[in-house]
Amino acid sequence: MSGDNIQYWRWREYRLTVPSVKWKNAETITAGIDVGSVSSKAVVMVDGEICSVSVMRTGSSSPDSAKKVLEWALEGTGIKPTDINYIVGTGYGRVNVPMANSTLTEIACHAKGANYIWGPTVRTILDVGGQDIKAIRCDEKGKVLSFIMNDKCAAGTGRGMEVLADLLKIPIEEMGEASLKVEEEPDPVSCTCVAFARTEAVNLLRRGWSKEKVLASYMRAMALRMCNLLERVGCEKDLVITGGQSKNIGIVSRVEKILGIKPLPPPNWRENGRDPMAAGAIGAALFAKALYEKNKNTT
């Protein structure tokens, strides 16, 4: 394969089943579907335990993406769509999740999901997705107290990483590590506008900067934007990071450095399915359980 055919921006899609979770005698089977701007996530829960997770790229149509990601989560589990008692849709494309019984904002779902993943000590959640940055404060039950998000501009979000991966020819999943290979942290780029990421990086390369230094500079600027939101919302421990960028060590380590607060490390999600990237879908599946039980008791 020639080097030019590699799609450096492509991050890995995956699905997983938690083998220890049995569903045959379950009281409730629920699902959460989070259709984001870049990735779609589905989580199937059996009596409040994660049974399976899938993460894939969002296509041009939100309804199709919702359907596909749920089908993929169910694949191999033996659970049929009709076995699911209740589905909650969330995320940027939530109005277009046709099979959802109800929809909730991703802010509520991320807080709920983070509470489930890390436990009741979580007070602040930084959710960095494809074109969103959200700083969320929550209580010990994962209930949202306040939040701030980038509602005017996508600067500093995950989309910029895809652009840079292609330009610098570094696989997207290796960019975080690469950005840490600088002797000295450079100044942040002056502009993190996603549409200008390319020109900004080209200008730096022209000045003789290494790829690693360009990445370090760009990620530092991203992290500064995130920390600005966190400071505005009032960052209290424990802090956790969710969304796609939670997997970017270049971002996570810089946020930690700037704030002086160490985010809780991600759990062993490959085994228990508690993937911080799927926090919104996890929260949605939990809400689905609560809503199903509430409806059952009232009827």
Partner: peptide, 16 residues
């Protein structure tokens, strides 16, 4: 037109 990236999403949803 607050943002090129958000604008793209707007255009795509209008096409849909």
């Amino acid at each position: 037109a607050t943002c090129v990236i958000f604008g793209e999403s707007d255009v795509v949803s209008l096409i849909h």
